[in-house]
């Protein structure tokens, strides 16, 4: 994984490309982030860079959090702290600024966010189960149906898909195209939808190639 940036989802719109096609984009206010801690093999056992994003009043943070920001030499305490694991973190120093200049139009990025919470959801919504007939005397409308065999095995197998809490979990959307970067406003436009509510925190990093390299 390479160093990314933290951002705030602002909302969606569409813009036209040079051929006149309407491209749906999500507008993200990304950065400027400051490096709050550099983790190294010697002190932490792994290498990573911790970034801080947004501002918060000292009152809303715990004293350790305020102290952590002070130690990094920041003028204002930050709201969010997130870590990016890197193969080598030695080129970064605490207090360093990371801006959207990290990205360029046309680049592929991975975006991590927290999906919108759906509350307690049934099988149809949560696992795309089919439903029963809605009429003709049927009372089996949205029921889950059978959840397993009878006396043998005499239990429900672990992991059986059932109703329950849905959403509000970490979601990664991979290989999205950066449509435009506006450095003077710290804004980045990414093609397509991104997880989470508007105003939600996002982690944007250059697309990670998974698996064996081609060729």
């Amino acid at each position: 994984m390479s160093l990314g940036i933290l951002g705030r989802k602002l909302g969606m719109t569409q813009i036209f490309d040079e051929e006149g096609r309407a491209i749906p984009v999500t507008v993200v206010e990304a950065g400027p982030c400051s490096v709050t801690q550099v983790k190294s093999e010697a002190t932490d056992g792994y290498t990573a860079v911790q970034l801080g994003f947004g501002t918060a009043r000292e009152k809303v943070l715990t004293r350790p959090e305020v102290g952590h920001c002070k130690k990094a030499g920041l003028e204002a305490p930050v709201r969010h702290l997130r870590e990016f694991r890197l193969p080598d973190s030695s080129q970064y120093t605490p207090g360093q600024q990371i801006t959207v200049d990290l990205f360029a139009a046309g680049q592929l990025v991975d975006v991590v966010g927290t999906s919108i919470g759906k509350g307690f959801a049934g099988g149809q919504k949560r696992h795309h189960f089919g439903r029963g007939p809605m009429a003709h005397g049927s009372k089996n409308h949205r029921a889950p149906g059978s959840i397993g065999a009878g006396t043998t095995p005499g239990r429900v197998f672990p992991g059986k898909r059932m109703p329950g809490r849905m959403g509000n979990e970490r979601v990664t959307v991979r290989k999205l195209t950066v449509v435009r970067v506006i450095p003077e406003r710290n804004v980045i436009l990414i093609q397509g939808g991104l997880p989470g509510v508007e105003d939600g925190l996002l982690m944007i990093s250059p697309a990670k190639s998974v698996g064996r390299a081609k060729g």
């Binding site: 602002l10 719109t13 813009i15 507008v27 206010e29 406003r185 508007e198």
Partner: peptide, 15 residues
């Protein structure tokens, strides 16, 4: 600027 203002200013360039 709030979120809607930023989005509108991006749209305004192409309107």
């Amino acid at each position: 600027m709030n979120a809607q203002e930023i989005i509108r200013s991006i749209e305004a360039e192409q309107m």
